[in-house]
Design a protein around this nucleic acid. Structure first.
Lengths: 165, 165
DNA sequence: TGCAAGTACTGCGATTTCGTAGTACCCTCT
DNA sequence: AGAGGGTACTACGAAATCGCAGTACTTGCA
């Protein structure tokens, strides 16, 4: 399965990589670069890039979340999340509400405008996602399972090697 | 297969994502964020981050390459590659040599120092890669195939939707 | 041959990412 | 109760990313 050596896109030579012998992590990198590029173009008219769309999607799914939770989720440093929140808030796409459980923290929530923007982006994202699913065909499940498994494995290692500082 | 709902790492909740129903592209994003974070930590002592290590690896593999080729490879804009080259050159890790085939362009090559740095990074990368392979176990092949397939699919779509500008 | 159109790269500058260090608050232990 | 240590977040500033516009060369074609 997944033995497709057909003509790759003109844009690059994915097939050039000797299929075997290439590190899995390297391939994650290649896949994510391509993904980011694709989504960046597609979502451009909404003013969101791939990362932002992902975050808006998480906010949509979880209704509200704290910055630390978000940071853990996307495996990003707190400072990065902090500036994301500031930016989103400045756009009027997000509001902070007090976190009753912890006064050092707060909860983030998409505003109607934020939700509207996300919906618009999702509209553009849909066809792309569908195209990916279509082209993956029967492999889609495998790919999804693989990515999930990979994330689990990497997280386990990240956890084990967590900065003992 | 790949039906692991066990306690995920303390660092986050990959399992929280409803396994199914989550878009493949979103999972690529999650996997790559985690990967970048892990490699960033591991490679820190060498002064390289995950992206740079990937690029050095490509330079090692191809001996020499042009900026555009590199840009296509990593699906990054030319300006980004341009500044990478400048940076690497400033570090003394890369040299530019004339491209006999095209005088607008040039070829990039790792210097001995660059190769040494890459080797040092590879030394740190090795155990991590091995751990990933070990933890993936029998799934490793599936995961690799999945990622390859994914990259091909995404590239095809990228190519199809290439900025008709 | 000669020129219009296309491609390879880069300077510049706006925006992002994220490390360091600092503040505010929470939790446990005594 | 209250001290010590941990956690949540942020201001600031340095470095990285990448769009825009410009230069240099190449190519297709008349």
């Amino acid at each position: 399965m997944v033995r497709n050596r057909s003509k790759s896109v003109k844009s690059l030579s994915a097939a050039e990589v000797r299929d075997e012998n290439v590190d899995v992590l390297f391939m994650v990198w290649l896949a994510s670069r391509a993904t980011e590029d694709l989504l960046g173009r597609v979502l451009a008219p909404t003013g969101l890039n791939g990362d932002e769309f992902a975050i808006y999607s998480m906010l949509t799914a979880s209704r509200t979340i704290t910055p630390s939770e978000l940071a853990r989720w996307m495996a990003a440093p707190a400072t990065t999340v902090s500036s994301y929140v500031k930016r989103f808030e400045a756009r009027g796409h997000v509001v902070r509400e007090p976190n009753p459980a912890d006064r050092r923290s707060y909860r983030i929530r998409l505003t109607p405008a934020g939700r509207r923007t996300h919906r618009a982006a999702a509209e553009l994202f849909g066809p792309v996602s569908a195209a990916v699913a279509r082209d993956l065909g029967a492999d889609e499940t495998d790919v999804r399972d693989s990515l999930l498994k990979l994330r689990e494995v990497i997280d386990a290692i990240r956890g084990a090697a967590s900065t003992p500082r």
